[in-house]
């Protein structure tokens, strides 16, 4: 049997419109694609396969909208396309469990390190656990060398440290987008890929009740660290911070309707130089 290199792709919206007031996301199916990291993963798989004569299989867990994205992989040179039909928004462990049977048997499984839709980047790790193989996650550099099947790579660790790995044998690897640029599909493969078949597989039933979201808070950016104001005593600094030292007359009480009040606040902020 021909050796196999697998790639896991996630179809995401590359540019989601967000309503600035409500935070509601405006979907646009035309922006479906994969992250640069997923593209890099396919490129490494294709390069690895060229060295060993292996076939490249691209697997994606998602709805029918992912089929067009998978065909882009066929245009670049993937031989087999598989889509596992899964509920959108399934947790990473279930996604990995759905993907696992379709990448089992591959010498290497390549993934992007994190998807663009605020993914946790946990699927590759769960996948390695499901398959019971080694993992090399978050690769910054990949060197396939001349060896058949293995590779060496540089990996990010916490605190800015790095670790160099040598991987032989079956493994799940995830790489960052900058490690490789996906090759430009040839015209011939572009034409062929239009008809490339996508094998559709059912996802296994969830193993245990998935954790469900009880509540959700809006996105809060981290607090900005502001240098302390000058002042010899703590009390002075606090007074400066809370504006108690501000010239008198700055504070003003107005009674207005909501729209006028908003206007008045904006005007005041602009007058105080608080607005850009």
């Amino acid at each position: 049997m021909r050796p196999l290199v697998a790639v896991c792709w996630k179809a995401v919206e590359l540019r989601a419109g967000v309503d600035p007031l409500t935070g509601e996301i405006r979907p646009d199916p035309r922006s479906l694609g994969v992250s640069p990291a997923d593209e890099a993963a396919l490129e490494w798989a294709l390069r690895a396969a060229e060295g060993t004569g292996a076939a490249v299989r691209v697997v994606s867990a998602g709805g029918p909208e992912a089929d067009g994205v998978l065909r882009q992989a066929a245009a670049a040179g993937a031989a087999e396309l598989v889509r596992v039909a899964i509920e959108p928004g399934s947790p990473s462990c279930e996604v990995a469990r759905a993907l696992a049977p379709h990448v089992a048997g591959a010498g290497l499984v390549w993934c992007g390190d994190v998807s663009l839709d605020r993914g946790s980047g946990a699927v590759p790790a769960f996948l390695a656990a499901e398959l019971g193989v080694a993992q090399a996650l978050g690769l910054l550099e990949v060197d396939l060398g001349a060896g058949a099947g293995g590779f060496s790579g540089l990996r990010r660790l916490d605190g800015g440290r790095r670790e160099r790995l040598r991987v032989e044998g079956p493994a799940v690897a995830s790489c960052e987008g900058g490690t490789a640029r996906l090759r430009r599909a040839s015209l011939h493969l572009m034409l062929e890929a239009r008809r490339a078949p996508v094998r559709i597989e059912a996802a296994p039933p969830p193993r245990r009740p998935a954790p469900h979201v009880v509540g959700r808070a809006p996105f809060r950016p981290r607090a900005r660290v502001v240098p302390p104001p000058p002042g010899e005593h703590a009390a002075d600094r606090v007074r400066a911070l809370i504006g108690a030292e501000a010239p008198a007359g700055r504070a003003r009480v107005v009674t207005l309707g909501p729209e006028e009040a908003a206007e008045a606040i904006l005007e005041a902020l602009a007058a105080w130089g608080e607005l850009p």
């Binding site: 430009r184 599909a185 040839s186 015209l187 011939h188």
Partner: peptide
């Protein structure tokens, strides 16, 4: 001629 490998039609 197109900008793809093997891109002549």
């Amino acid at each position: 001629r197109t900008d793809r490998p093997g891109g002549e039609i």
